[in-house]
């Protein structure tokens, strides 16, 4: 059976934990898995990929032309490599979402987006309508191109020692150039990797209140911070905190929704969390329909109390 190629998510220096989750999906296809690490100065990420359990080989394409992993050169590289593989897969990150369909079209394959379960090597489950329905699809193209919703797969373990091999670089025109990036560096865990998440909604009211209320609660839980679209649009939180249909999809052990009504587009991003807590002053807010524990009341009173209680419980 032809091997599976998994496109790694990384920032050259380190491997993003979603790669280990996508690896679990890749291994479920039943064929040997090769991990492709593309970047400029990405040796450290390649070494981290080689340590993942179950990886047969790590391929590295390391060149200045792959800096920032723009879609044009990376998809061309995938085309050059694809002939050897039965499936090419990537996590559904901003990078994976940009590159994978471009590659799929170049080899005339219809991609299966956001796989949440591998039923067999050609049959997959994926959510549609913001997760309000699940489609089971059979991909009839010879090569399977799959993006993986990583929140639905447990991370593969570490302890492997796969060989690392450099691959030939693909020549491409470069119609796009990188100009700059504003990436927040925070000591907090990343949303898609966090064990716990505290998210704030429109009701939090301001960026200052996010700092004063939501962040201390998150810190007490060693949690990542998320937000609803309304909170992001209002400028209370940066765009990369958005959880939902069009933001990040998360499934932590604990999700605390503060002053979030629970619109379907928000639920689409968090309803697979293990334990959901909702704090909302409206007892009929839809968020309570998915919450394991609901606290009806004013967040400005409850959140500081909760932060203090958690600190006490952990002391």
């Amino acid at each position: 059976m032809a091997a599976t190629l998994l496109l790694a998510e990384h920032d050259d220096a380190s491997l993003n934990p979603v790669t280990a989750r996508a690896l679990t999906a890749a291994l479920a296809l039943g064929a040997p898995v090769h991990v492709l690490v593309v970047g400029a100065g990405c040796a450290a990420a390649a070494e981290a990929a080689a340590k993942l359990d179950g990886v047969a080989e790590v391929l590295v394409a390391d060149a200045p032309s792959y800096a920032h992993r723009l879609a044009e050169p990376v998809s061309a590289l995938l085309v050059a490599l694809a002939g050897d593989y039965g499936a090419v897969i990537a996590p559904s990150t901003a990078f994976g979402k940009s590159v994978l369909p471009r590659f799929a079209a170049l080899i005339d394959v219809m991609q299966v987006s956001d796989v949440i379960a591998v039923i067999s090597p050609d049959t997959f489950d994926r959510p549609i309508y913001a997760g309000n329905a699940i489609q089971r699809v059979r991909a009839t193209d010879a090569t399977k191109v799959l993006s993986i919703r990583t929140a639905s797969f447990a991370p593969a373990g570490e302890g492997g020692a796969a060989p690392i091999r450099a691959v030939a670089l693909a020549e491409t025109a470069a119609p796009a150039r990188f100009l700059g990036e504003e990436v927040a560096h925070s000591a907090r865990p990343e949303l898609t990797a966090a064990r716990a998440i505290v998210s704030g909604g429109r009701a939090v009211g301001s960026a200052e209140n996010f700092h004063a209320l939501i962040e201390p609660l998150a810190d007490s839980l060693s949690a990542a911070v998320g937000a609803s679209r309304a909170a992001v649009d209002a400028g209370y939180a940066p765009n990369d905190w958005q959880v939902g249909q069009t933001g990040k999809v998360v499934a932590p052990e604990l999700y605390v929704a503060v002053g979030i009504s629970g619109a379907i587009q928000h639920l689409a991003g968090m309803k697979d969390s293990k334990v959901i807590v909702a704090i909302n002053k409206d007892e009929d807010a839809p968020i309570f329909q998915v919450a394991d524990y609901g606290l009806v009341g004013d967040l400005f009173q409850i959140v500081p109390e909760l932060t203090a209680e958690i600190a006490k419980a952990k002391a």
Partner: peptide, 15 residues
């Protein structure tokens, strides 16, 4: 909008 924040690109037209 990318996962960690924002990225700016310059593209040749058409695009």
């Amino acid at each position: 909008e990318i996962d960690g924040g924002l990225q700016t690109l310059s593209l040749d037209l058409p695009a």
